[in-house]
């Protein structure tokens, strides 16, 4: 017996040693690649970053000057996307969590179609946006068309996150509200939506983060124009598109591309961390106190 025990122990410890080594090196490799990327962008980007870079207009096809109008266009595109996706998404999430019976076939159909929509490649969404919003609806290359295309893209993420947040609200409160004879609408407005507010905010932040990172869906919907937009029907260049254009189409655009990438990453880190913090801390705290 002892012999067998010893035998198997040596085998497992060899396996163990190998696995520990493999897993630590994989983790180190991933961390190294990440730090390399981040460090590179930070190092080169910080050299060109200044207040005037954030406010001035790009000059000489973006080689010099700043990204002022591009930030404005980006914000306008995001605003359109949020304005379109949030009401529709919130209504859908509420309907999916509070109004349908589990296993309802229409509910499953909606869920399935949202899941597939979440997987549609962004360039295909760009094709759709170009054909539908720009050509069919006659919006042309515009911030409106770009924003609406992004709204289609972030809708599934927003709905699924908001849904999870609403489902995390304890059933006690739903039953309590029903037992008091409150209508579903009243229960939603007074109890469920406020209780799920942090998760809804997290969903919004995730959606904004995804939209802000997007390039392919915007090239052929909101377009390339790097002037300051004067209305939603103007074409406007998003920050991500700017980075793409500088690095691919403009020789000598790299320094400003680095600085733009740093700005974009910083904004995204802020947005995504806020989403994470909202989802983890606030929701938990509210529900734990219950």
């Amino acid at each position: 017996m002892a012999k067998y025990g010893l035998f198997s122990m040596t085998i497992t410890s060899n396996l163990d040693r190998f696995m520990t080594l493999a897993i630590w090196s994989a983790a180190l490799l991933v961390a190294a690649a990440f730090l390399w990327l981040l460090g590179d962008v930070l190092w080169h980007g910080a050299a060109h970053l200044s207040w005037s870079f954030l406010t001035e207009a790009p000059e000489n096809a973006g080689r010099s000057g700043g990204i002022g109008p591009i930030l404005v266009s980006t914000l306008m595109i995001l605003a359109v996307a949020v304005a379109a996706a949030v009401p529709l998404g919130l209504a859908t999430a509420v309907w999916l969590t509070e109004f349908i019976r589990p296993g309802s076939s229409f509910g499953r159909l909606v869920g399935l179609s949202l899941d597939v929509l979440a997987g549609v490649p962004s360039i295909v969404l760009g094709l759709f946006g170009n054909a539908f919003f720009c050509v069919y609806l006659g919006l042309g290359f515009s911030i409106l068309a770009g924003g609406l295309t992004l709204a289609c893209m972030v809708l599934p993420i927003f709905i699924r996150t908001a849904e999870a947040g609403l489902r995390a609200v304890p059933a006690d409160w739903r039953n309590g509200a029903a037992a008091l004879g409150l209508s579903r609408g009243a229960a939603l407005i007074h109890i469920l939506l406020p209780a799920a507010a942090p998760a809804l905010a997290a969903a919004l932040m995730l959606g904004i983060g995804r939209a802000m990172a997007e390039t392919a869906a915007l090239i052929y919907t909101s377009g390339y124009v790097d002037r300051m937009p004067s209305s939603l029907s103007d074409s406007g260049r998003a920050l991500a598109v700017h980075i793409y254009d500088l690095s691919m189409n403009v020789a000598g655009g790299d320094p400003n591309a680095y600085a733009s990438a740093l700005v974009l990453i910083t904004l995204l880190i802020i947005i995504n961390s806020t989403a994470l913090w909202l989802a983890e801390n606030l929701l938990q705290r509210r529900i734990v106190t219950a």
Binding site: A179, L180, I191
Partner: peptide, 11 residues
């Protein structure tokens, strides 16, 4: 009216 096992005041 109904009172539940676990007190459920609203937040």
């Amino acid at each position: 009216g109904m009172i539940f096992q676990k007190p459920n005041p609203f937040p």
